[in-house]
């Protein structure tokens, strides 16, 4: 994953769900969480910049590298739930 094809995407929490599904994590075939579903009406779909197939490298600056699926999912869930921010910053990579 080169820096050339990474993007920082800000997802504003404008819906009561984030509306994505991820698979993978450390110790699996997919070592970094990959977006497998984007649900209509969710904040991610409204943001329009996240796409199925992208890999999530960081959430609000927290790296997901080396995180197992459960821990990566907890970090994303916390980021959406916290009232400290009205958005989530995802650093994503498009795999060529």
């Amino acid at each position: 994953i080169s820096a050339l094809n990474t993007a920082l995407v800000r997802v504003v929490k404008n819906s009561n769900t984030l509306g994505i599904a991820i698979e993978g994590g450390a110790n699996t075939r997919q070592p970094l969480p990959r977006i497998v579903t984007i649900q209509k009406g969710g904040s991610a779909h409204n943001c329009g910049q996240l796409k199925v197939g992208q890999v999530i490298l960081e959430v609000n600056g927290i790296s997901l590298r080396g995180q197992e699926h459960e821990e990566a999912a907890r970090i994303i869930a916390e980021a959406f739930k916290t009232k400290e921010k009205d958005h989530i910053d995802f650093l994503v990579a498009e795999l060529g």
């Binding site: 769900t17 984030l18 509306g19 994505i20 599904a21 991820i22 698979e23 994590g25 110790n27 699996t28 075939r29 497998v36 579903t37 649900q39 969710g42 699926h69 459960e70 999912a73 994303i76 869930a77 959406f80």
Partner: peptide
């Protein structure tokens, strides 16, 4: 450690 068996674990948010 060998890959665990949660290969296809998917979490929805």
């Amino acid at each position: 450690s060998p890959p665990k068996d949660y290969e296809d674990e998917v979490t929805f948010f």
